[in-house]
Nucleic acid binder design. Sequence first.
DNA 1: TGATAGATTGACCCTATGTCAAGTAGTTCT
DNA 2: AGAACTACTTGACATAGGGTCAATCTATCA
Lengths: 210, 210
Amino acid sequence: MSSSSSHYGDIDTRQRILAEAWDLLEEKGSEPTLAEIAEKADVSRQAIYLHFSDRSGLFVALVDYVDVSLGSEKLRSYVFGAPTGVETLRRWVETMSWYTRKIDRMTQVLEAGQYNDEALTAGWRNRMNRRQALLLGVTERIAGEGRLANDWTPAEAADLVYTITMPGPWRELTREIGWTEDQYKERIWKLLELSMLTVPLQGEPSVEIV
Amino acid sequence: MSSSSSHYGDIDTRQRILAEAWDLLEEKGSEPTLAEIAEKADVSRQAIYLHFSDRSGLFVALVDYVDVSLGSEKLRSYVFGAPTGVETLRRWVETMSWYTRKIDRMTQVLEAGQYNDEALTAGWRNRMNRRQALLLGVTERIAGEGRLANDWTPAEAADLVYTITMPGPWRELTREIGWTEDQYKERIWKLLELSMLTVPLQGEPSVEIV
DNA sequence: TGATAGATTGACCCTATGTCAAGTAGTTCT
DNA sequence: AGAACTACTTGACATAGGGTCAATCTATCA
């Protein structure tokens, strides 16, 4: 071990722990232990407790870290910068497909931990609630454009879109059943289109892939 | 229980362990330990190992136990005894809604454990694969009746129905978002109907969805 | 020079799973 | 009756991992 021949002042230890934790999570088949994370981040196990309250705290922090790392802000502006509500929805499905893959393993840990861990549950739910709120905005916009099938209220539609595009279904369809990412995007979009959207009014061109 | 309060010869210990394990799982907020299960079943902790290979083995066995307890055989014949494929699908949604609630907590444990436990994964996947196969039969039947929208192959439709009616989405919609069980049934059915089924030939002229 | 913040080291406790060996109590076989 | 067998108990032990504590080290800053 280098045993701190040079110090790590330039890279914040906390960040390094998070980075390596994520790395381990993505590469390993199972949940990494604190000892493993510490070793990979080249710190002592105890150092983790200097930066996070406990194991859950680390994983909760990981959620935000990953969001930033993956540039979720940019993704968000791509999705919500769409010219129409319908196109926003399409981009949502498209983007979720990619994003969910990137964070799949982390997601599994958080979902699994939910059962016995309050802090983890809170962190996860917080994230998901934001997502849900965003989607309500989308379906309301679609409704405003007169494109929401009148079988649904915006809230109902948002709930369904939210649920269907969650990590669970994504994992099932792609990882277990074997759909490709493209198939996932196409078919989920088709499902939503057929069930929730009306045919555009005359003059308005149908939404085509840009 | 027929008499004999002295010893437990009449009730199979294995069954009792499973019964109490399920009971604990449903009533407790968190995953019960082996010690808790043993105590509630009135056996020593070690006795569990006489009946199950290990912790995972117990939970895998629990899946079958619960199926039998809930009369899943009867449910199955209700669902698949439907006169048409479309009605089979409707009954599927209806039944899953009820059944999933009954086994919700157990499901959570199995899903959570999947991440680090092979045996648990195998047990769960085995169960889910059977479900998937059943659904393929249903969508094929629907296709045979000419009621499957030609946007979908029976396999694609089955995959989607399977995924949407899995425990994850059910839990999200009812437990977290707050849909009632009836709302769940209605709306999921509506979603599937609008996206996958054609209007029956006999009677009204079909409204083409372009 | 000394104070301080960030880490380290190593010992320790706790919980829970899993394993082992020896013992006990009913049942059945002969 | 006695032997053998089955099901279970008791208690000890090993191991893993999370979480805590106290003492120490070291770079940097004033």
